[in-house]
């Protein structure tokens, strides 16, 4: 097997089965194999329930696989324990969700700062960086606000700033524009594509063909499998 070192992700026959009750098994991924290179922008498309989110969560080390092999930056992490996976999320990955997932009782700035809290980075440095990122996403005048005081597009920009806090090599976005109007959606995609151009690998789940157009490559999922690659 060719362990190409410009490859960030490799899936080998990955399956994911949910067990409901004693003998009800729900297969969600039924043997997915694929590779994603460093710096790529990949869109994952497919109908609802086809396993896109599950696949993204597995890529993001949030979910565990049932069988198969997962190589992240050339390392087989299929059998990593919870702490080791947390470490990868903490150092390498930035998540962006459809529903923003900001913590309501924290301010915008505190939300952005959160990833570095768990790396125990110095408070002043963290703050400085968070303010810089708030600037970058155009929310420097909103840092003291609560998420509920922002529009959807603004909240998603906060989420992007948060995802960038740990200088991730990989950004995973699950329908990032799903709750937004087309103008805000465009802004968000421009931000994400800008990051991708600077070298960050970007994987975006969407069922909007317009969003998928931004990607260099589209993986089409159907019923827990990658249907075709183009």
């Amino acid at each position: 097997m060719n362990q190409n070192n410009n490859q960030i992700i490799r899936f080998e026959e990955i399956t994911k089965v949910y067990h409901l009750g004693k003998d009800i098994d729900i297969p969600v991924l039924r043997g997915v194999s694929c590779e994603i290179k460093k710096g790529e922008h990949v869109a994952i498309m497919g109908p609802s329930g086809s396993g896109k989110t599950t696949m993204l969560n597995i890529i993001g080390c949030l979910d565990k696989i049932s069988s198969g092999k997962y190589f992240f930056e050339g390392k087989d992490i299929s059998s990593f324990d919870d702490d080791a996976l947390s470490e990868i999320r903490s150092k390498k990955i930035g998540f962006i969700f459809q529903s923003y997932n900001l913590i309501p009782q924290l301010t915008v700035l505190e939300n952005i700062e959160m990833p570095l809290f768990y790396q125990q980075v110095d408070e002043a440095k963290t703050r400085e960086k968070a303010i810089k990122l708030a600037h970058m996403v155009g929310l420097e005048d909103r840092i003291k606000h609560r998420p509920s005081e922002l529009s959807g597009g603004q909240q998603q920009r906060v989420a992007i700033a948060r995802a960038l806090m740990n200088d991730p090599v990989l950004i995973l976005a699950d329908e990032p524009t799903g709750n937004l109007d087309s103008v805000s959606g465009k802004e968000i995609m421009n931000l994400l594509c800008g990051l991708n151009e600077k070298g960050t690998t970007l994987i975006v789940v969407t069922h909007d063909a317009n969003i998928a157009k931004y990607a260099g490559r589209v993986l089409k999922m159907l019923d827990g499998r990658i249907a075709n690659e183009n």
Binding site: L62, R89, K91, Y118
Partner: peptide, 14 residues
């Protein structure tokens, strides 16, 4: 949900 978010950005169980 907050717990899920914190775990996603790298919080360990600890």
């Amino acid at each position: 949900r907050e717990i899920g978010i914190r775990r996603a950005v790298g919080a360990k169980k600890r």
